[in-house]
Design a protein around this nucleic acid. Structure first.
Lengths: 350, 350
DNA sequence: TTGAAAGCGCTAACAG
DNA sequence: CTGTTAGCGCTTTCAA
């Protein structure tokens, strides 16, 4: 009735510990422990210990050391969904930077559900993560405020909440870029497919968009504004609703992301309209598919935000200081879906 | 010179442990430990202990319990990249199932690089993961064979390697479906954009495709075969190369995934050809964008594979048995990019 | 520098 | 069912 230890056959020798090395070298466990944390060439003892460790195939046990040091060497990242490629890119960069710093990353997806957010963060905390990267913050701030009370270093990425350290894209500026571009292209009746209202990201983009429109003496009327969400499907539904109310608009800004723009394109086409010609379509983020599909969009520095967030968090963990918030500028990428008239507009089902 | 314990101000009371509860209830630590693992209503003691734990805000320390039990409650998933939405979907399902079973998931991305694969797996092992889900297996089997020697329960997902427990899509059948469809549509000159050759997935799809073509007395000649990889860019480059050699083919199967098909579409359009009309394009996986973009593709049960893999792994961890391999059938999804002639083919830049 | 000793929080023999 | 005891592998006082 032994505990179910994995693979402890009779002959399977136990994994070497500090004890093993100590016995092999005739040193004490504490000396070995110390030596292992110096470089091999720093002292003769260190060299001996490192050699023995190498020879015995010693691997440190982070669990045991965690228990003692109260540091897990793990950071938590909470995202709304990793199937959103923007979040996946952020995660990837976080992982890269964390790995370099000797940390592992535990991710948790919350689907932007407040209850799930709390649950998953608590779970990460019980795993003793040394810090948190929050990529699913909500505009109302309740969530981020709660995070701040946890006593764990943290930093927001991509999504803003007022008063918290955050690595952000200037979404407001991004929205402005889109409006300026469309108006310059001669569009006067502009429609807006919004993202979720809990996200400061889409809120700010819409804000910037509307402001520029207003500055030009125009407006985005209520009936040309519709919820577009964050997914292809919701973008499609949003555009269908828009088309049900009006056919007079000549351009639409899908400020949630590029996927909603793809959905909008799909709905336009289904309605017999030619995207890019009858209706200009602009997305946000510049995901890989946007290029192939000739979607005008705004390129946001997601990868950089991920790196920045991770680097900031690691240094916050080291030094105990609060990270400095940073904002990066987005860039407009004009493609066929918003530049008319254009030869390449016609032709191609895809 | 204390260790840098996070947030241990004078007044910040220490986090409650079993000891705290033991003292509060007058019981011993071991009784508390046991009671906590029973349901509250199972015995009077259990009820008392649970109540006290609740009142004191006790949270179990998985690190400490790991050290003792030699089980971490964490499973590792190794993927080639989470920015590949197919892998992200698998991860998401794995996470869902694992969470339900009380496990956390540690992911590692390897970019399909053999050295990175080893490194990251070793890292997961040093974190004492209780099992591994391998979603980036290679066809040559060396990697999977190595995994098998580790003495940790594991299961492959999506990507096959001979002789290992795996949750798979019948990719060969998927390839056949595509060829049958295209030939039925009247295509005779078929091009093939392959995926990476280390992946059994794309290899099998290409195999199935070629077999059907051959059964119809046709063939996919060397000069109509080109590497398409797994990304939009590589798909685009592949199609450019194809077009540089021939303009006579009327259909192309991008067997790597849908993204390479988007890339191919882009290249076709840049060459003045109309995708879906001049050249039929078929992808693989049926990602969300494929629907909006009218791409014919093969729907593979990624989500299900993720669930199956996680469930199989958990039960392997529990019972010590080797998981049973499972294969699921793919499904052809015909859209505008391969059904000609078609009204909706014309028009639309996107 | 080094080693002895204590202990992180938990679980599991073992004996009552 | 309960408590006592021991110890997982590691780090870190403390004294030599």
């Amino acid at each position: 009735m032994r505990p179910p230890r994995p693979h402890d056959d009779a002959q399977a020798q136990a994994r070497p510990t500090l004890r093993t090395i100590a016995d092999a070298t005739g040193l004490s466990v504490s000396t070995v422990s110390r030596a292992l944390r110096r470089d091999a060439h720093e002292s003769p003892t260190a060299a001996i210990v490192h050699a023995a460790a190498e020879r015995l195939g010693y691997l440190p046990d982070p669990v045991a050391s965690s228990l003692r040091t109260r540091r897990s060497g793990v950071i938590g990242m909470v995202a709304h969904s990793l199937t959103d490629v923007v979040q996946a890119i952020i995660y990837q960069q976080v992982d890269k930077v964390a790995l370099r710093g000797g940390f592992d990353v535990l991710v948790a997806a919350t689907a932007d559900d407040p209850e799930t957010q709390r649950e998953r963060v608590r779970l990460l905390l019980s795993r003793r993560v040394d810090g948190l990267i929050i990529a699913d913050a909500h505009r109302d701030g309740a969530y981020a405020d709660w995070i701040a009370t946890l006593g764990v270093p943290y930093v927001l990425a991509m999504r803003n909440a007022p008063g918290h350290p955050a690595m952000l894209c200037d979404d407001y500026a991004g929205g402005r870029l889109v409006a300026e571009h469309l108006i310059e292209q001669g569009h006067r009746e502009l429609a807006l497919l919004t993202g979720p209202d809990y996200s400061a990201v889409s809120f700010d983009r819409a804000q910037g968009f509307r402001d520029v429109v207003r500055e030009h003496g125009l407006e985005v009327p209520e009936h040309l504004t519709e919820y577009g969400g964050l997914h292809t499907e919701s973008g499609q539904v949003g555009m269908e609703r828009l088309l049900g109310r009006s056919r007079s608009f000549t351009a639409v800004f899908c400020c949630g992301n590029d996927f909603t723009a793809f959905g909008a394109v799909s709905a336009l086409r289904a309605a017999g309209l030619v995207p890019g010609s009858d209706v200009a379509v602009v997305g946000f983020n510049d995901v890989a598919a946007a290029k192939a599909l000739q979607l005008t969009t705004v390129s946001s520095p997601q990868a950089e935000l991920g790196e920045l967030a991770a680097a900031a968090l690691l240094s916050a963990i080291e030094t105990g200081t609060t990270p400095q918030s940073t904002t990066r500028a987005p860039e407009l990428v004009v493609r066929a879906s918003s530049s008319r008239p254009l030869a390449m507009m016609r032709g191609g089902s895809v």
